[in-house]
Amino acid sequence: MASSISDNHFELSIEVPFPSQREVSIALQSLSPDREPRAGGTIKTLSASANALSVKWNAVEARSLRVSVGSFLDHLALVMETMDAFGQPALQ
């Protein structure tokens, strides 16, 4: 995780490891479709590597950054729980 602050600008990057490329790809596609609310001035960028999901935020307000990160982590946890609970049968 990395974060930096300059004048009126906040950045945060996180990497979320997954067991395989398949899980990374599923998480990326489940979490990508919805846009950030425009009013917040926060930009979130998702990308995938071989076994990790990378998320990067650019924000003008700390408050909207915190809201965005908080809800993203909630959504990520839900996607991971769903994979744990319903992932196995598809691999048959």
Binding site: I26, S30, P33, M83
Partner: peptide
Amino acid sequence: LLTVALVARTVAQLWG
């Protein structure tokens, strides 16, 4: 809406 859509998207991919 989003909570439910996240699970739907995830299972759709898991199950192909």
